[in-house]
Design a binder for these strands. Structure first.
Length: 274
DNA sequence: CTTCACGCCTGTCAGC
DNA sequence: TGCTGACAGGCGTGAA
């Protein structure tokens, strides 16, 4: 579900809610969400440890625990993380519940149950392939025009699919890829190698601008996304093309179309994006 | 190595 | 109203 701006918004909210807290118990209601280890092993690694820091890499949340342990959580499509007071109403989609030492409960809820969790020592983090091979993130110093040029050169795949590849850029998902290509004026089915230097420069700028804007609006709530306080994002008011099939392009007045590219719903302006 | 299709799950919504 | 099929913000796997 969430992409970089949404996961970062969750991280910022959760930080004040859980940092310094000790995990005193875990209720695992759906053990298959624990990957790479048994539920018993997961419990043994998490219970009794304090949450020192909350990090993020791409769309992964990394809870740094005592004793060099990291709780790694990926929300996938419909995962949510939030803190619940002891008397708050239970959530029928709660899949894991962490009891904290102040009485609060950290809830991992997930309608589609595609999310994943694991508890790993630092030297084991490499077994999470998506984390180990993730490319640089938008707005980072490693994400430069030169990097983008080098990594897209000689690629025959469609630019939309390439931008969704987390090994190329970490953190982009379907919404922000469509939005970035719209801002850069690039058709989603162009090949990576066909993008000119001038367009690469525009694309680099657009990706950074779109992610920056979305962060400032605390993410996009298109359907399910909520932050750690249960609040919706605000960036849906600012989308240029995503979810706007048949509506008018703000730039040229043409109607926005929806197609399928690489198996993903794709929105673009056929006049502005070529 | 790169690209692409598919499976994983459950819920919602448009259209008939 | 009720049913069916399309679609959903992600990612890993395996085939070509």
């Amino acid at each position: 579900m969430p992409e970089l701006p949404e996961v970062e918004t969750i991280r910022r909210g959760l930080t004040c809610q859980v940092e310094g807290r000790q995990i005193v118990a875990v209720d695992i209601r759906l053990p298959r969400l624990i990957t790479g280890q048994t539920a018993e092993e997961f419990i043994e690694r998490v219970v009794g440890r304090r949450i020192l820091l909350l990090d993020r890499r791409g769309k992964y949340l990394l809870f740094r625990l005592e004793d060099d342990m990291t709780l790694v959580i990926h929300l996938r499509m419909t995962g949510r993380l939030y803190c619940r007071k002891p008397n708050d109403a239970p959530d029928s989609y709660a899949r894991l519940i962490f009891d904290l030492d102040n009485g609060d409960r950290l809830v991992f809820a997930d309608v589609r149950t595609l999310g994943t969790l694991s508890a790993l020592r630092s030297e084991e983090l490499g077994i999470i392939h998506g984390l180990a091979t993730m490319g640089p993130e938008p707005l980072s110093t490693e994400f430069t025009i030169d990097y983008l040029t080098q990594v897209l050169a000689s690629r025959k795949g469609k630019i939309k699919s390439l931008l969704l590849d987390q090994q190329i850029i970490g953190g982009l998902g379907n919404i922000y890829v469509d939005e970035s290509l719209a801002m850069a004026g690039i058709h989603p089915e162009r090949t990576g190698a066909s993008i000119s230097h001038e367009e690469l420069s525009k694309l680099h700028q657009a990706i950074n601008a779109v992610i920056h804007e979305a962060l400032s609006h605390k993410g996009t709530t298109f359907r399910d996304y909520r932050d750690s306080y249960g609040k919706s994002g605000g960036h849906q008011q600012h989308l240029r093309v995503y979810g706007r099939k048949g509506e008018i392009c703000e730039t040229c007045g043409e109607r926005i179309v929806r197609t399928e590219v690489g198996g993903r719903g794709t929105h673009f302006c056929p006049n502005c994006q070529r």
